[in-house]
Design a protein around this nucleic acid. Structure first.
Lengths: 186, 186
DNA sequence: CACCCGTTCGACTGATCAGTCAATATATTC
DNA sequence: GAATATATTGACTGATCAGTCGAACGGGTG
C-alpha cells in the first residue's frame, strides 16, 4: 500500500494513454486512490513527477537487461543475453517501454534528466568499446553505435508488442537479434 | 505572405521548442505575426493544427526522399539514393524531422492521422516487397523490415544533426547506409 | 502522556488558455 | 460596381488545472 508507488503506476498508465497535458494531476490522484495533496507531497511539481518516472523506467530497463550478462563468456553471447533480457523486460513492463517511446524525446523531460539517464548507459558504452577493441564490431564512433543499437532494439520491441509476438518464438527472436548485430558487427 | 504558411512554420518551431501544451495558440499567432482569430480560421482547433502539421511533414519527407529514385536501375542504388535524399531532407528541413522525432508517437496525433501517414509509405512497402522477391533482402515480415529501416534512418539522421556531421562526408554517409542495409539485406 | 515529524486529506484560488464573435478588410464573381 | 464569399482582427469568456494551505492523523521516542 505504498501510496507513492500507486501514484507512479497510475501516472505512467494515464500519461501513456492521454499524454502529459491531457492528464490532470487530479485524475492521477483519483486513479491512484489518493488525495491531490498527497501527490504534491511526494512530488513538488507535475514536472518533477514526470522526470522521476523517466529515471525510474530507465533504471528498471537497465538493471533487468544486464542481469546475468557478466556470466556469459563469449562477447556475442553477452550481447545476445542482454538483448533477450531487454525483450523480456518489455514484455513484463510494457507500460514503461511505451512511456519511453512516447516521451523519450519530449521537452518535458529536462535535459538534465536525459543526461542522467544517459549516464546509466555507461555500462553499454564500455561493452561497445570492448567489442571494438577486440575487433568484433565496427571501428567507428561509439556514440553512433549506441544510437543505432538503441534504435533497433526499440523498433524490435515495438514490433513484438504491436504484433503480439511471443518471445518463445526463438526463430524470430534470433532474426531480430541479427538485424541488431549485423548493423554493428565488423 | 501566405499567413497559413507562416502559422505552420511558427507552430513547428514553437512546438519543437516547448511541446504542445506549453505552446499557447496565442504565442503561435504572435510569432507568426497574425491574430488569434486567423489561426482558428485556418485550423478549427489546436489539435487540427497539430495533425495537419504531422501530415505536411510526412509528405515533405516522402516526396523529397523519392526524388529521382525511379531513375536508378540497380536495386541497391535505388535504396541508397532514397537514403541520401532522406538525409538531405533532414538537413534542409531539420525542424520537420525533429517534429517527427518528438511527436511521432504522441497521443495528440490521432490514430486516423498516423494511419493516413502510414498509407503514404505504400511506395516503400512495394520497394521492400520487390527486394524480397528478387532475394536482395531478408525473407521476413515486410512490416518488420519497414519498422527497422525507419528506426535506423531516424537514428542516423539524429546523429548527423546532433554531431553536425556534413553529408559531404561520403565515408560516414556510406557507413551509416551500411548499418541500414546490413540489417535488412539477405 | 506529550512532543515531534512525516504523511494524508481535499476544498479552494489565481492564472492560463482554447476557442468565440462581431466588426472590418480584402478578394472573387457576375 | 454591387453582391457575395473569404480572410483578418483582437478583446473577451468560460473552463480547466497546477499547486496551496491548514487541519487532522498516526506512529515513534523519551
Amino acid at each position: 500500500m505504498d501510496k507513492k508507488e500507486q501514484i507512479c503506476k497510475a501516472a505512467i498508465q494515464l500519461f501513456n494513454q492521454n499524454g502529459f497535458d491531457k492528464t490532470p494531476t487530479s485524475q492521477i490522484a483519483k486513479e491512484a486512490g489518493v488525495a491531490i495533496g498527497t501527490l504534491f507531497h511526494h512530488f513538488k511539481t507535475k514536472e518533477e513527477l514526470i522526470n522521476s518516472l523517466y529515471l525510474r523506467c530507465k533504471e528498471s530497463m537497465i538493471s533487468r537487461s544486464l542481469k546475468g550478462a557478466d556470466q556469459e563468456k563469449a562477447y556475442l553471447s553477452k550481447i545476445r543475453r542482454i538483448y533477450k533480457n531487454y525483450l523480456q523486460w518489455g514484455m513484463d513492463c510494457t507500460d514503461e517501454f511505451l512511456f519511453f517511446q512516447q516521451f523519450g524525446y519530449s521537452v518535458y523531460i529536462y535535459d538534465k534528466t536525459k543526461e542522467e539517464g544517459r549516464n546509466k548507459f555507461e555500462v553499454f558504452l564500455e561493452l561497445l568499446k570492448e567489442g571494438m577493441e577486440k575487433e568484433f564490431i565496427k571501428n567507428t564512433s561509439i556514440d553512433y553505435l549506441l544510437a543505432v543499437s538503441t534504435a533497433i532494439m526499440m523498433a524490435n520491441m515495438n514490433y513484438f508488442i504491436q504484433n503480439r509476438v511471443k518471445i518463445e518464438d526463438e526463430n524470430f527472436v534470433e532474426e531480430t537479434f541479427n538485424a541488431l548485430w549485423n548493423s554493428i558487427r565488423r
